[in-house]
């Protein structure tokens, strides 16, 4: 079971969290202006890299804060977690 460092609560067991998919995928400013293809790309298409991946997590059974993380998908190791208002680490 992963140990995930909530930016607010510190390290907690994975069971306290929900996974939230790829991070930094912004909801389109003007969804109506998108073509079907562009909208489908936003709706369905996500990256699936082997290696570091920026993703969202939700501390659902703790402080109920969403935050971002960089996790290495090949090892499950968290490189960093950061608050929604923080820039991702370089």
């Amino acid at each position: 079971m992963l140990l995930i460092r909530c930016p607010w609560c510190g390290p907690r067991d994975e069971v306290e969290f929900h996974y939230g998919g790829q991070a930094h995928v912004a909801y389109p400013e003007d969804a109506e202006a998108l073509s079907d293809e562009e909208w489908a790309d936003f709706l369905f298409m996500r990256d699936n890299p082997l290696g570091p991946f920026r993703e969202r997590w939700y501390h659902v059974h703790g402080c109920r804060r969403w935050f971002n993380a960089v996790r290495d998908t090949s090892t499950h190791r968290f490189v960093a977690t950061y608050r929604m208002d923080e820039e991702p680490p370089a």
Binding site: C9, R12, V15, E16, H61, G62, C63, R64
Partner: peptide, 10 residues
């Protein structure tokens, strides 16, 4: 204080 789970209960 802390919020967490005890068994299946928040």
């Amino acid at each position: 204080c802390a919020q967490s789970l005890f068994g299946g209960a928040q």
